[in-house]
Structure formats: C-alpha cells, structure tokens
C-alpha cells in the first residue's frame, strides 16, 4: 500500500515536471514577446505604455515560479536522474549532460536577468541593458533544452506548442527589426539640458 502510494506520488512528480516545463516555455515565450513589444513601444489598446512593461515584469516573475517548480521536481523525481548541482552548473551532469546543461544555462541566464532587473536602479541602465541582451540567448537555449530532452517532443500537441512559440518570438523579432530598419527611433530619446532650463 505504501509502495503503491509512493509510486503514484513519484509518477505525479514526473508528470508535474514535464507539464511545468511546457508551461515554463510558453510563459518565457510570452515574456520574450512582451519584452520585444516594450522595446517596440507597443501598447495594448488605449492603455498606457507602461502596462506592457508591467506585464513583461510580472509575467517574468510568474515564469520564474514555474521554472522553479520544473527544476525542483526534476531534482526530486528519482527517474529524472538530475542532481542538484546539474541544475545550477551547466554540462556537469552524468545523464544527458548537454540537454540538461542547456536547461541549467537557461535557468542561470533567467536568474541573472531577474536579479539585474530588480537591481536596475543600483546597477545603472547600461549594465542592465547589457545583461538584458542575454534574454535573446536564454529563450533559444530553453527551446533547445525542450527539444533535446523533452519527453513529449515527438507528440503532435508539443510540436504545435513549439511551433507557436517560435512563430510568436519570430514575428515579434521581425516587427522589431522592421521598425529599426525603417528609421523609427525606439529607444528613449535623451532630452538636452538646455530644454530643461526654465527661462528666467
């Protein structure tokens, strides 16, 4: 009886690990698209522009929660054979080091992005922006981790999810590049000091 309940719990952890991984990928895709939309100065309807940035920030924190569930269940589940070190240090695991290493690398990058965003005022805009460019690396690394080790990669629904994620990020990137190449100035313009001076 005890062994049966342990087996059910173990299978539950296994299913939770897989499903949280899929949802993490979807959420990270949403965060990526919202980040690009923020850089594009897109606004949802008539809402103020900071709504896009706010959504980007809050959904990023939500995605981190799901990534945390994915990582913890991967370590807890005995059949996943992922050590606690392998989820932090990339490419050191004994079992499938490349695929799990990609996941660990993605986790490290996401954590770096979140920490630098929380400390943005202390770090300065230039450092924050430099680290934030890593987001363009974190998402594809997570995608390749999913494609490499994902148990459901071959299924139709997972292929549809992956295709949707790639299409969403690809479309957002195309719009971003289109705006950049067509002379739309997307970065916040620096206001000259003379303009701030109040005439006497």
């Amino acid at each position: 009886m005890l062994a049966a309940s342990a087996l059910v719990a173990s299978k539950g952890v296994w299913y939770l690990m897989r499903s949280s991984g899929v949802v993490s990928l979807v959420l990270l895709t949403g965060v990526m698209v919202l980040g690009i939309a923020t850089a594009n100065r897109w606004r949802p309807g008539r809402a103020p522009r900071f709504v896009t940035a706010g959504l980007h920030r809050s959904i990023a924190l939500l995605a981190v929660c799901f990534v945390a569930v994915h990582v913890v269940t991967a370590v807890v589940d005995p059949y996943a054979m992922v050590s606690a070190v392998a989820v932090v240090v990339p490419f050191v695991g004994a079992h499938k080091p490349l695929e799990i290493g990609l996941g660990a690398l993605s986790v490290d990058l996401v954590v770096a992005l979140i920490v630098t965003s929380l400390l943005r005022r202390r770090l300065g805009l230039r450092v924050w922006r430099g680290v934030h460019w890593l987001a363009y690396l974190a998402w594809p690394v997570a995608l390749f981790h999913s494609l490499g080790i994902g148990s459901d990669t071959g299924t139709l629904w997972m292929r549809a999810v992956t295709a949707g994620c790639v299409a969403a990020v690809g479309g957002a990137l195309v719009v971003r590049l289109w705006n950049t190449n067509h002379g739309k100035r997307l970065e916040p313009q620096r206001v000259p000091r003379s303009a701030l001076k109040v005439p006497a």
């Binding site: 299913y15 939770l16 499903s19 899929v22 949802v23 979807v26 809402a47 709504v51 959904i59 939500l62």
Partner: peptide, 22 residues
C-alpha cells in the same frame, strides 16, 4: 489595475494549463 488583472488571469491560465498537460 489592468496589469494586476491580466497577471492574475495569466497565472490562473498557466496553472490550469499545467494540470491539463499533466
């Protein structure tokens, strides 16, 4: 308010999607 509302909706949808996928 809209940020909070949409975040709540996304969180609920993500939890439901996790259960569905599992």
């Amino acid at each position: 308010r809209s940020v909070r509302r949409i975040t709540r909706i996304v969180a609920a949808a993500a939890a439901a999607l996790t259960a569905l996928v599992a």
